[in-house]
Amino acid sequence: MTAQPPVPGLEAAFGVEVRVGLPADHGVTRAGHRRVVPIIGGGIYGGLDAEILPGGADWQRIRPDGGCEIDARYSAVTPDGELLYLRAEGLRIPAPEAAAALLRGEQPGPEQFYFRTTVSFEASSGRWAHLERSLFVASGLREADTVRYTAYRVT
């Protein structure tokens, strides 16, 4: 019998709350409709505690279907003073009825969006190097000035 690869699972890893500023709409570029959303702070909690530093951003591409391709990059500092670099890449896609509500100027509920990302880390400290040796996936929601997500380690 040939060995089978293990079936991956998910284990809750940490939560993230990112405070964001007003987006800068760059319009349609050669890469598509580009929007840059500044990251102005926030925190990581539950299994990993850190303060998100201002200065990062989410370099978004807005898709013709109203969805958004996420490419967020930001830094955080742990209570022991170690810096972490995070990158979240993914999709935030409205359901058809949510897209119509947005066009009417209404704000649909978070359940009307598919908002999933991968999260990766870079750490210079050996204490946090284990974060670089795991894959994380997250489910998120967007509020007026905040993005929140829960990250899960893929086992």
Rank of each mutant, 00 (worst) to 15 (best):
M1I: 08
T2V: 05
A3G: 10
A3F: 06
L10V: 03
A12P: 11
A13G: 02
A13M: 04
F14Y: 14
F14Q: 11
V16C: 12
A24L: 14
A24C: 06
H26P: 00
V28E: 15
R30C: 00
A31S: 12
H33G: 09
H33V: 07
R34S: 06
R34I: 08
R35Q: 15
V37W: 13
I40D: 00
G42N: 09
G43E: 15
I44E: 05
A50G: 03
E51N: 01
E51W: 05
I52H: 08
I52R: 04
P54V: 01
G55L: 01
G56A: 04
G56V: 11
A57L: 09
D58R: 03
R63Q: 13
D65C: 11
G66V: 08
G66C: 12
G67K: 14
C68K: 11
C68Y: 12
E69W: 13
E69Q: 15
I70P: 08
Y74M: 13
A76P: 08
V77K: 06
P79C: 02
P79E: 04
G81E: 07
E82N: 06
E82C: 06
L84H: 03
R87A: 13
E89M: 13
R92L: 09
P94W: 01
P96G: 11
A99K: 04
A100Q: 11
A100Y: 04
A101V: 05
L102E: 15
L103G: 14
P110K: 08
E111A: 15
Q112K: 10
F113P: 06
F115Q: 11
V119W: 15
V119Q: 01
V119I: 10
A123C: 00
S124F: 00
G126Y: 06
R127P: 05
H130Q: 03
H130V: 04
L131T: 02
E132S: 11
R133T: 06
S134P: 04
L135T: 11
L135H: 12
F136E: 03
E143Y: 02
R148N: 02
V154L: 12
T155N: 06
